[in-house]
Write a protein that binds this DNA or RNA. Sequence first.
DNA 1: TCAAAACCCTACCAAATTACTAAGGATTTT
DNA 2: AAAATCCTTAGTAATTTGGTAGGGTTTTGA
Lengths: 139, 139
Amino acid sequence: MKISTKGRYGLTIMIELAKKYGEGPLSLKTIAQSNDLSEHYLEQLIAPLRNAGLVKSIRGAYGGYILSETPEKITAGDIIRVLEGPISPVEGIEDEEPAKRELWIRIRDAVKEVLDNTTLEDLASHSDDGETDSYMFYI
Amino acid sequence: MKISTKGRYGLTIMIELAKKYGEGPLSLKTIAQSNDLSEHYLEQLIAPLRNAGLVKSIRGAYGGYILSETPEKITAGDIIRVLEGPISPVEGIEDEEPAKRELWIRIRDAVKEVLDNTTLEDLASHSDDGETDSYMFYI
DNA sequence: TCAAAACCCTACCAAATTACTAAGGATTTT
DNA sequence: AAAATCCTTAGTAATTTGGTAGGGTTTTGA
């Protein structure tokens, strides 16, 4: 019941891109260094994000990646689905017997609700500060 | 982001025990056969449930397992925690930077809410019928 | 022009986890 | 005593995770 580094690092990449949105491309090297991650590994994670149309790449010197859309239009759910597969606590949810099927559906919907209502704008605007306005999440 | 067969089969065992609650012990062999699962594998799953005090074992001929408490006092969360570990989308949630930490906390709390408010009584009473009163879950 | 910077692609691999199987011992009831 | 059942340890094949290796190809600033 865990989200792997694929989804976690993918979110990290996308949050970095959101923070620099409108300021030109950001290289994977920069993202890898500032987050202490393997650039090669991030390359493998951004490939599906590019194929899914969430980011655009700009090649050559001073190139990098940019978001395809504004940060408020991309959700955590978009990213997690691309890197982790469908949001569901079990595969073949419809094959389960009624009681368990209902349980899985309720869990799935609860997680979807959070992921699909959290945008990159939300995430980028809260990633620098400390605890000061984290109360916003609890309203 | 999946619950493995440990948690799923564990729930299956516990739902079967809930359905027979008050009618004496139910053997793993019976549970394994009626659910088409490996008895040997179920033995490995019920061991932690016994150690956690969720079930009691009765040895010898005509023995088996019984719930330690009434079905309404045992939740899906109790079972999943024993077999899958802590309910959390990532390990070391507190080590994440603020934005992601808040996201993981919101997901964790949403899943907890469902698992801790679904009892074995709920699950056992809905496991025989079809779709007829599944609307109860949506109120 | 040209070399560096960056993206792109295909393998491969070690460690961990999952999902069991195998084999037998311990305990209790009939 | 025999049968039924719980209980325990060990091994193992398949899959996933979390990368590394080693190369391309494309673009652009100097």
